Computed example of a mutant assay.
Amino acid sequence: MSNKVILIVLDGLAYNTAEQCMGFLQGLNAQGATTLYKLQCELPSKSRPLYETILTGVTPVLSGIVHNDVNRNSNQQSVFSLARKAELTTAAAAFHWFSELYNRSPYNAARDRHTEDLEQLIQHGCFYHGDHYPDSYVYLDAESLRRRHNPDFMLIHPMNIDNAGHHEGVDSSHYRNTVRNSDGELSKYLPTWIDEGYQVRRFSR
């Protein structure tokens, strides 16, 4: 089995909505190609603290990343730091808070949006700084990074689901359709990633 991993964090995705609206992923699960787990969220349930928890396993009250305005590098051991210690290649197509947590803080778009720096924890990055940045672009950015760098660990983090929930509510048709769109985008890439030997892990936040 390959040790290469792609971690996809679908920000703001409700478990029940995923069950109802992500037909492709549910189809994979029904065929036994994937495994579905329901996890208890750490508190506070805010974006930056939980990004740190997902990547380090450390709860917000212990990491010190307790709200979205804590703008500094992580001081915890993360998946990225472990990968780099093992001389593995890392990449991310993600919101710029990940760049601030694991590369440089504060984020400077002109310097950091496109990162190619072998000395950083996230060596190859395509970071965005607007919640409305299309999910389709995030997946395309990720695939471009994968093809160019063949990373051992890659993070993919789209934000349109979370953005739809904040603007229209989780019971809205806009929110559900945004979830369906993300599922459709995943259906374009997941088969190739699996065929290429990647283990794919998905988290809903």
Rank of each mutant, 00 (worst) to 15 (best):
L39S: 03
T115S: 09
S204Q: 07
R146A: 14
L88F: 04
S204G: 12
S136K: 13
G197V: 11
L186A: 07
D131G: 01
N108L: 13
I161Y: 05
L101M: 01
H166A: 10
H166N: 10
C41N: 13
S2D: 14
K46N: 06
Y128V: 08
T59C: 07
W97F: 06
I6M: 12
N150F: 15
L62Y: 09
G64D: 09
L140F: 06
D117P: 10
D183I: 02
V138W: 09
L7T: 11
Y175Q: 10
L36N: 05
Y51D: 04
T89D: 02
S144K: 15
R84S: 01
V9R: 02
D171W: 11
Y133H: 13
E119D: 14
R111W: 06
I8T: 04
F153G: 02
L190K: 06
E52F: 12
S187W: 08
L101N: 01
D171C: 12
Q199K: 12
R104Y: 10
A110D: 10
Y51W: 14
I161E: 08
Q123C: 03
T192R: 11
H124A: 04
D171F: 13
N181G: 05
E196P: 01
T35K: 10
C21I: 05
L118C: 10
N181L: 11
R205N: 00
N73G: 02
G57R: 10
Y198I: 08
H114P: 00
P151R: 14
H129N: 15
R113D: 11
T53S: 15
L28Y: 03
L43H: 15
N177D: 15
K38N: 12
R111P: 00
L155H: 03
Y139G: 00
H67A: 04
Q199R: 12
V200P: 06
R146W: 12
P191N: 11
V138Y: 09
P49W: 06
G64C: 05
N29Y: 08
K85I: 03
H166E: 10
S172K: 08
G64V: 03
A83T: 00
T53D: 03
R201A: 11
E185S: 07
S47F: 09
F95L: 05
I122G: 10
G169M: 12
